[in-house]
Design a protein around this nucleic acid. Structure first.
Lengths: 199, 199, 199, 199
DNA sequence: TATGAATGAGCCTTCATTCAT
DNA sequence: CATGAATGAAGGCTCATTCAT
């Protein structure tokens, strides 16, 4: 019975999604504060007034973006939860996540949004939740590796998971700025991570 | 002959420095794009017109800030270049740099400026140079550890140095957002780094 | 044959009345120009589109309000037309009308609408008609007082009636602003009016 | 030493006055809420940005207008303070004040501003102060008439003064709407007032 | 009749920057 | 070097109104 969406509801939802994509594209290109609502409306082929019907303020675009971010991390979580040896799973994840974070656009957006989040606790909370999901999944994988005696650590699995994520995100972002590709970067990170896991 | 600074030159230089400090304070409080030139002028107790005499545009404040950043990293470099066993030097550095990056203000500023830098190559170059200095100093320290057979790595010293810096900066920034202190964070980072260095 | 109102017509009429009340409430709270159509629709529990079905424009709400104003003055006219000695009738009217005009909400609305009326002759006409009814009733009462030799004036009854109404309305409005109650005000007005009527 | 106004200060002051006049003219023509800042700027031949240099917000234009209102009432106060028999002074005042309030523009502005004042206590206070000055001057005149045994009242001089002012203002405003001139109106008011003063 | 998404002009305000003094 | 008035484009947002459903 959850499918009682009229054609109109569906169209509205589509529109919302469409606007959000346009907004994201603008934020990537020019940054959050450099993007005007008019610009977003134009890019989404929506009148300015109607943009405000769907998102009551610029802030809400950010929130919606943050909420949607969870979708972006889903594939990475799926990767972490596959039923493969921990070492293989970790390698694949590092390569894949590093690539994901290395994208110029992703890096720009990450910094821009993170900067904004520092000043808007509401935004920060949403991002941290998404991030925590990732850390939990990664620490599960680490735990399974520890159980198999493949890994051994002196700090908690969860703390290690967070450090690994920090490392990947930060390196990838810097790589994007300096022009280092994820193909160069991933092996270095992998080496450091596996060393840290005493493998 | 480089000392032919008149009293006036000196005063001018002081003024510049004073303005830059005011600007930095504003950027920390509200962000680069959210700070107006008027605001900076007021905070620096300088007239708006005069602010423009010292810095021909808002962009130049950013450049000056970036150039000055080198001063901020000096103590960390000094720490890395002390004549102590590599392990001790590294520990001290991690603790100190982590603390430096954990400061809420520092974290905000870092993100804000980094986001801006992504779009202004000129700015990025300056920051990367400062950062490279740090990486060089750190890789020297690592090298000395390797020479003493305390460390052993599978990737280049310089790459490892960069990864370590990435790790510290990123973790510290996240810590600042999540409310984790550098005192909690530093030991974890230390553990991971030393594990990665096979100590 | 004028009673061929279907149930539907009646419902429609009710709806109109309901909307008008909501609009009036909004105008009182925020002023005519500060009130949005959306707001009125929401307050009346009517969809925006439907609001426009009942009132084709914001202007029409004002007109309808003006037309309805006649209802508000009915009790005062009834008071003036009672079969009591002119002096008593006048005293009662002053007290009652002064109280009616002293209401903060009434005062706000009066000023707001009057200001609007100054620019929209159509609106002004409606208000003046209502007001004229009041003046006529009051001058009748004065006339009966004159006939009984209780009053004696040097200007026409109608002019005097208008002056009295002006006096009450203006004093009451000022009282509402200054925080003077109608209980303090009415006796003063009464004194002045009766003096003017040579009583 | 109060004349240390530079040429610039004077120009600034002139500009301010000029803008205020333009704003007043706009308010008269279209009403406070119907007038846009752009419109005022254009009418004052000032750039929009500069308008905001002189008046930091629309609200401040209203405040400035209110503050300046005191100037407008000065001639009436002077009229009340002349050294002439109270009866003559009063007659002249009624005629003059009635004429002043009868002006269409004045009436419009009065209503518009009064409506605004009802919602902005800060504005109301300023207007009431000006008005109180007038009432004080008028009650002095009444007092002198009482001393000369020309007037005799049953309420306080000050209350009577206020009632008289209310009467004039309200009648004049209505006259402006209905198209009654102050020349017709003033004698009626005079009659009523003098009757009320038992002359 | 009833709904609310859609429109785009308009609102108040802020901004980086210039320039006459 | 120092001042702050002046500029006008751009900012986020609201509005009365229309119209397809």
């Amino acid at each position: 019975m959850t499918k009682l969406l009229t054609k109109r509801d569906k169209a509205t939802h589509e529109r919302r999604k469409h606007i959000l994509e346009a907004a994201t594209a603008c934020f990537v290109e020019k940054g959050f504060h450099q993007t005007g609502m008019r610009e977003i409306a134009k890019r989404a082929n929506v009148s300015l007034g109607n943009l405000y019907n769907h998102f009551p303020g610029k802030h809400d675009l950010l929130v919606a973006f943050a909420d949607q971010e969870i979708v972006v991390t889903e594939p990475f979580i799926a990767l972490l939860e596959r039923d493969v040896p921990a070492q293989d799973g970790l390698k694949d994840f590092i390569k894949s996540y590093c690539k994901g974070c290395s994208d110029q656009e992703a890096a720009i957006l990450f910094l821009d949004i993170a900067a904004e989040a520092m000043r808007q606790p509401g935004i920060a909370k949403r991002f941290l939740k998404v991030r925590a999901n990732l850390a939990v999944a990664l620490s599960s994988l680490i735990a399974s590796g520890v159980a198999d005696k493949k890994f051994s650590l002196t700090i908690s699995n969860f703390d290690m998971a967070n450090l690994i994520l920090d490392l990947i995100e930060s390196s990838a972002a810097r790589g994007a700025i300096e022009g280092i590709t994820s193909r160069e970067l991933a092996p270095r990170i992998e080496a450091m991570v596996f060393a840290a896991l005493r493998n």
